[in-house]
Design a protein around this nucleic acid. Structure first.
Lengths: 195, 195
DNA sequence: CCGTAACCGGACCGCGCGGTCAACTTGATA
DNA sequence: TATCAAGTTGACCGCGCGGTCCGGTTACGG
């Protein structure tokens, strides 16, 4: 497809440093960390950032793509786990443990700016749905839960924790645990009809 | 205390319009809606905004203060309700139903920029704690839940719903219901120890 | 070792933001 | 109705952002 010449040694090095720095910066200061600051963290010039990624959004997309990749792979693995309920919980824990502020950013761009991102994303979606279906069949979670529910809820802990100052780094576990409990079928009240 | 002369008629009108417009704008575009835009919505000049509120943050604080007031009053009322569990659920529904994007903004400013805000806020905090305690005594929720847990979790639905495009306006009910189920004591697994 | 294409960097641009100000308008008061 | 403090306004300022660009630098094939 796209003629892809190998990167020059220094270019590859810079690109890697840039991605790492961007990940750090987004996690630390939210997604409106300035490009200049990211470049500073990476020890490169601002111009170089835009050489590698034409737009700040493209840089963000690249960072997010990495996360999605990892999660998709994990979801695939966990499809073979013996305990479907436990597998789903493990997946949600991995997802919630991801870097902050990137939470749901991979849902942001409705119109696929980046094809590759869209591809991996839908891959992740179907994997999650499969994970959820297995958990439902095993009776580990109630039957009216959807993959989208899981995606949305698994990101909530990371977000709410953002607002408590000096939070212990694993406070999110507390809220994920509560939320996961809410998915269980025992004594579940019917979900409100949503128009 | 502070010598407070009554506002002139037009000033009062403008202030009301401004607050309403700000509430709209923040809900529609998030808290970085521009002051210029808010002024436009209110049909007044940008300068007038800064006459009423020296800073954009002060304007936001005023909007948030209104919400907190309403919630604090409601929490107080619900303390007399017959069913403590149901009362807590009702409160969380009211809180989650609040305007979007303002979710947890009242936790933001650690150092109290605005004394009045701090006062009403702590009032709300204690009322919520009381509500939670009653629900615990009645066995409606598990005993290791704190007021802070409720505050954080009641804001989650509104946030996650932000990311699904064309969401029905009451989709948040679905997620609040799930989360509230997670608070119940039946078959609760122990909460992970948080360092 | 050399030529060159790829790469790097930081000065530079336009924009929109929060906030200021001095000239103007208006509602309360006597 | 005359007076004037209170209120209003939009042009204006400085700043930091995302993004551009060209002169200097560097890795790599021949």
């Amino acid at each position: 497809m796209t003629r892809e010449r190998p990167l020059r040694a220094d270019a590859a090095r810079n690109r890697a440093a840039l991605l790492a720095a961007a990940s750090e910066a987004f996690a630390a200061q939210g997604l409106d960390a300035s490009v200049a600051d990211i470049a500073r963290r990476a020890g490169i010039g601002k111009g170089t950032v835009f050489r590698h990624f034409p737009t700040k959004d493209d840089l963000l997309a690249a960072v997010v793509l990495d996360r999605i990749d990892v999660l998709a792979e994990l979801a695939q693995e966990l499809l073979g786990a013996p305990e479907p309920g436990e597998a789903l919980l493990q997946f949600m824990e991995a997802a919630a443990g991801q870097q902050r502020h990137l939470d749901l950013s991979f849902l942001r761009d409705a119109a696929g700016v980046n094809e590759m991102l869209d591809g991996t994303r839908s891959e992740l979606f179907t994997a999650i749905t499969a994970l959820v279906d297995r958990a439902k069949e095993a009776g580990a979670i109630r039957s009216d839960i959807t993959g989208m529910d899981v995606i949305l809820l698994m990101c909530a802990p990371n977000h709410v924790v953002t607002f408590v100052p000096d939070a212990p780094p694993d406070l999110w576990r507390r809220y994920l645990s509560i939320i996961f409990d809410g998915l269980r079928p025992e004594g579940a009240r019917p979900l409100p009809a949503v128009s």
